[in-house]
């Protein structure tokens, strides 16, 4: 049975649908990426799955418990890391962990083990409020895995964290998944999406793509050419207007030119007199296209 199996989740705030008919399944032991632009409904979805929000429509199960009726049972087995740091800034690391351990009725060793496991022992008497972003994130992760949950819901855990700390964080997540923990992690970093086993892409409240990274890229049916030019800015401006060209993204002196119709794309590039070679379509190209599509659908 899947760790997360929800169908038709819908939630509106003040008459505006923030999440619209989202169905999601996450297998046990999987690291599932939850992607989408800001305000696309990722946080609302996660909150509905851990019982913090009541869905207007839809239902489902998390770890075999009904999300509407068994929120308490879900809370006990889920570790939820909020987007905004939500531990007590006027408590030390150790005091925060002891508070959480108390609420889960964990033995005193749990705090000590967690501190050691995450390399927080030397900083345990430091006030949470005085920690840098990376350390706050570490504390939050420590607090939500202390009770050995079966599912981790991480809401943009690496926002504002430096690359080294991000790398370490992901190593930690993969380590936990290897031990059988299921992880749903929301992010809008593409490199992080590629670290997930499967991804789910949500935009404007709708789930519009899901699968492994290669599957999602393949299903978009995009062709990308790499164009080198002396004056890429000027060429990019011209190409954007050309028929068949859907995206032009500059990467240094190279342009990534993307479109669905390979023939039309080649024609446009030849007409522009550009020298080009086939390139790989990136996840970012796919997402930008998906976002544009779903915005058109909304309009």
């Amino acid at each position: 049975m899947n760790a997360i199996e929800v169908t038709g989740l819908t939630k509106a705030f003040h008459g505006r649908k923030v999440v619209d008919d989202v169905s999601l399944s996450v297998a046990r032991g999987e690291i599932a990426g939850f992607l989408g632009p800001n305000g696309s409904g990722k946080t609302t979805c996660i909150r509905m799955m851990c019982g913090l929000l009541t869905p207007d429509a839809g239902d489902g199960q998390v770890l075999g418990h009904d999300i509407r009726r068994e929120a308490r049972a879900i809370k006990r087995q889920v570790g939820y890391m909020t987007q905004k740091f939500s531990y007590y800034e006027d408590l030390t690391i150790e005091e925060n962990l002891a508070f959480v351990a108390g609420l889960y009725a964990l033995p005193a060793e749990a705090v000590r083990d967690t501190l050691a496991g995450l390399g927080l022992t030397s900083r345990r008497s430091q006030l949470a409020g005085s920690l840098s972003g990376g350390w706050k994130q570490r504390l939050a992760l420590a607090a939500c895995i202390m009770h050995k949950p079966k599912l981790l819901l991480l809401d943009e855990p690496t926002a504002g964290v430096d690359p080294k700390a991000r790398r370490e964080f992901w190593d930690e997540i993969h380590g936990l998944a290897a031990d059988g923990l299921t992880v749903l992690v929301s992010t809008h970093y593409m490199d992080e999406a590629e670290r997930c086993h499967r991804i789910n892409y949500i935009a404007y409240g709708r789930l519009i793509a899901h699968g492994t990274v290669p599957e999602v890229i393949a299903s978009a049916g995009l062709t990308t050419f790499l164009v080198t030019a002396d004056r890429p800015g000027e060429l990019a401006a011209r190409l954007r207007k050309a028929p068949g060209v859907e995206q032009v993204a500059p990467f240094g002196t190279t342009l990534h030119v993307t479109g669905t119709d390979r023939a039309a794309l080649e024609r446009a590039l030849t007409e522009a007199g550009a020298s080009f070679q086939p390139g790989e379509t990136s996840l970012e190209d796919v997402f930008i296209r998906l976002m544009g599509q779903s915005r058109d659908n909304m309009a």
Binding site: C50, L52, R72, K75, R76, V78, Y80, T82, K84, F85, S86, Y87, Y88, E89, V100, L103, Y104
Partner: peptide, 13 residues
């Protein structure tokens, strides 16, 4: 106001 409510609600109290 301090943003800790969400976490408090997610904990089993």
């Amino acid at each position: 106001e301090r943003g800790t409510m969400e976490n408090l609600l997610a904990l089993p109290a």
